[in-house]
């Protein structure tokens, strides 16, 4: 079942009088429980596509559907609402809140999604356990290794059970061994919890968990 669908997406940026076309009618879909890898070199438009599919940016042209419902909103508040209900993000730089502990980082994401109090704490603890950071629950991000930080980011992305997880270069800042562990965790979560997982990367090792690999170059899909 398709959970995320982008159809004929165009995106251009205006810089003064110069218009740069970044995406040229790109189409992409993602099913529940599927792991899709979006590969491409720097400047190919893969992160822009991820941002559009993640409702962080609006396309110049084209349509997006999440869970069968079209995303027509162009207002930032409505896009935020869609992100809150349907999407989880994992960033290359982790982007954890440095003043919050591991548990609080996950709990805060639950709070944003409307889950508060003891229930938020219970769910956060469950997610921290799931990424095997139980004994680091009260650590601040500065006291964690890169792999542990990425595990927290994954737990945070899972908060609120979003059907789609979008990850931007999740192994870029990790060594090979830790990167492999993170990918195994991703794969496990996608399959066990039936989430759609779209990973943007130029790391070929990520292919090991892919159900599908999509190549993007100069704003065009080359192979799917």
């Amino acid at each position: 079942m398709t959970i995320l669908k982008g159809d004929s997406i165009f995106k251009s940026f205006q810089d003064g009088k110069i218009e740069t076309q970044v995406l040229h009618g790109v189409s992409l879909d993602l099913a529940r429980g599927e792991v899709v890898i979006l590969e491409g070199p720097s400047g190919s438009g893969k992160t822009t596509l991820l941002q559009i599919l993640g409702c962080i940016m609006s396309p110049t042209k084209g349509t997006i559907e999440i869970n069968g419902r079209p995303v027509a909103a162009s207002r930032s508040r409505e896009l935020a609402s869609i992100r809150k209900k349907n999407l989880g993000f994992v960033f290359q730089q982790f982007n954890l809140f440095p003043a919050l502990t591991v548990l609080e980082n996950v709990e805060y994401a639950l709070n944003i999604k409307g889950i508060d109090g003891k229930e938020a704490r219970r769910q956060a603890q469950g997610l921290v356990d799931a990424v095997e950071l139980t004994n680091r629950a009260n650590y601040l991000p500065r006291d964690l290794s890169g792999g542990q930080k990425q595990r927290v980011a994954i737990a945070r992305a899972m908060a609120g059970k979003p059907p789609v997880i979008l990850a931007d270069e999740p192994t870029a800042n990790l060594d090979t061994q830790v990167g492999a562990q993170i990918l195994a965790l991703f794969n496990d979560l996608a399959k066990r919890e039936n989430r759609g997982l779209l990973i943007v990367t130029h790391d070929p090792k990520v292919r090991t968990i892919a159900d599908r690999v999509i190549q993007i170059r100069d704003g065009f899909i080359h192979a799917a």
Partner: peptide, 13 residues
């Protein structure tokens, strides 16, 4: 960037 993260994960203004 943290405020950006709040927005990215669904937080509003």
């Amino acid at each position: 960037k943290e405020f950006g993260t709040v927005k990215a994960i669904g937080g509003s203004n």
